[in-house]
Nucleic acid binder design. Sequence first.
DNA 1: CCCATGACTGATT
DNA 2: TAATCAGCCATGG
Length: 106
Amino acid sequence: MKRASASRSAIYAAVRRIPIGRVCSYGRVARAAGLPGQARQVGYALAALDDLDVPWHRVVASDGRITLPGEAGDRQRALLRAEGIEVIDGRVELRRFLFEEASLPG
DNA sequence: CCCATGACTGATT
DNA sequence: TAATCAGCCATGG
């Protein structure tokens, strides 16, 4: 198993702060983790995730879309719906479910 | 070191 | 709303 870098740990910490029933975008998570402009790294970190305590499914693209490929996307949609989040046509209504967390690392 | 890839984003058209 | 494009950067070959 790969060891998590400091940046990845910060990313995971930020994702863990997203409350149930809310979502956050990759870019916002990156900022909250102290890595502004590195949204792709968030996706990369989540792709390599093996820590089940991280609610990765609450992270969507900046326009609310589920950009996760293949069956994993279906899994994410199911998990979101299970938390009461509406997913219409592969996307979440950010106006209702976006969680805006502080840009604080750790 | 170079190159390709990717769970992205913001601006522009 | 959708399509394009440039910028972003860790990871692996």
